[in-house]
Amino acid sequence: MPSKGIALVTGAARGIGKAIALRLADDGFDVAVNDISANSEALAKVVDEIETKGRAGSAHVADVSLDEQVRGMVEQVVETYGRLDVMVANAGIAGIIPVAEMTSDKWDHVMDVNAKGTFLCYKYAGMQMIKQGNGGRIIGASSIYGKQAGGAVNFAYTASKFAIRGLTQAAALEFGPHGITVNAYAPGAIDTDMLAEVATEDNPHQAIIESFKKQSPLGLIGVPADIANMVSFIASKESQFITGTQISVNGGTFFD
């Protein structure tokens, strides 16, 4: 089957990013996946899964917080496939750091990965899509905490996700005349490895899950496929009249 286009998904070695990459492969896209070098082995396995689905896949190791690495990553994808049609800037980090323990270095690290990393992905993907002249889809990863602060999150994480909301709107205005839509997904609680990593002895993983279930009128916690399903639509031609939005996928935990 001919390819629907070329997609690049960052932070794709596990969790939401991996689910997005595999769903886009199911949708008919050839998919380039990215993560940091520490996750290169897991990233290679994602490529294997993409190829098992009959689509082309490739791994691109890069730190999204570094300008030259993001630029090089986009260039590699274009050298490999000839173009870039969908950018999913999914890579991000989280953590629970009380304000008294929030050092400038910790703040900068979260902002560099989440906010600057998304900016760089938007920038270089947008420039490439403008050059191609056929439009495109740019998609970022915000959060329920990019709409309303709350819960056990740190100051930097909340600020970084609010930044993605503004960045997405600004990019939609600038790239819109070129037929490029720019949107973000705003997940609520999703049961991933990242959620497990914030568990403590006093607040174990299962207790966190049950707490989030109680916050949803559906009595559910999300799974990575819930986000991948939304991204599938945003990346499609059918989403052509949607841009500048931050779409909630949170089981009703927060109403816009």
Results as ranks from 00 to 15, higher is better:
Pro2Cys: 00
Gly11Lys: 11
Gly17Val: 11
Ala19Met: 08
Asp26Ser: 13
Asp30His: 11
Val31Lys: 08
Val31Asp: 13
Ala32Trp: 06
Val33Glu: 10
Ser37Asp: 13
Glu41Ile: 14
Glu41Cys: 00
Glu41Gln: 13
Ala44Ile: 03
Lys45Leu: 11
Lys45Gln: 15
Lys45Glu: 14
Val46Gly: 01
Asp48Lys: 15
Ile50Lys: 02
Glu51Ile: 00
Thr52Tyr: 03
Lys53Arg: 15
Arg55Gln: 03
Gly57Tyr: 01
His60Ser: 04
Glu68Phe: 09
Val70Trp: 03
Met87His: 03
Val88Leu: 08
Ile93Asn: 07
Ile93His: 06
Ala94Glu: 03
Ala94Leu: 05
Ala94Tyr: 07
Gly95Tyr: 08
Glu101Ser: 12
Asp108Arg: 14
Asp112Gly: 03
Phe119Ile: 11
Cys121Ala: 09
Lys123Ala: 02
Gln128Gly: 10
Gly135Glu: 10
Gly135Pro: 03
Ala141Lys: 04
Gly146Pro: 04
Lys147Glu: 11
Lys147Met: 15
Lys147Val: 13
Gly150Ile: 10
Gly151Tyr: 02
Asn154Arg: 04
Asn154Ile: 01
Ala156His: 12
Tyr157Met: 05
Phe162Cys: 10
Ile164Asp: 04
Ala170His: 09
Gly176Lys: 07
Pro177Lys: 12
His178Phe: 15
Ile180Lys: 06
Ala184Leu: 05
Tyr185Ile: 15
Ala186Gln: 14
Ala196Pro: 02
Ala199Trp: 04
Gln206Ile: 02
Ala207Asp: 15
Ile208Leu: 13
Ile209His: 00
Lys213Pro: 00
Lys214Gln: 10
Ser216Ala: 07
Pro217Phe: 01
Gly222Asn: 06
Val223Gly: 00
Ala225Val: 01
Ala228Arg: 11
Ile234Asn: 00
Glu238Gln: 15
Ile242Met: 12
Thr243Pro: 08
Gly244Phe: 02
Gly244Asp: 10
Ile247Met: 14
Phe254Tyr: 14
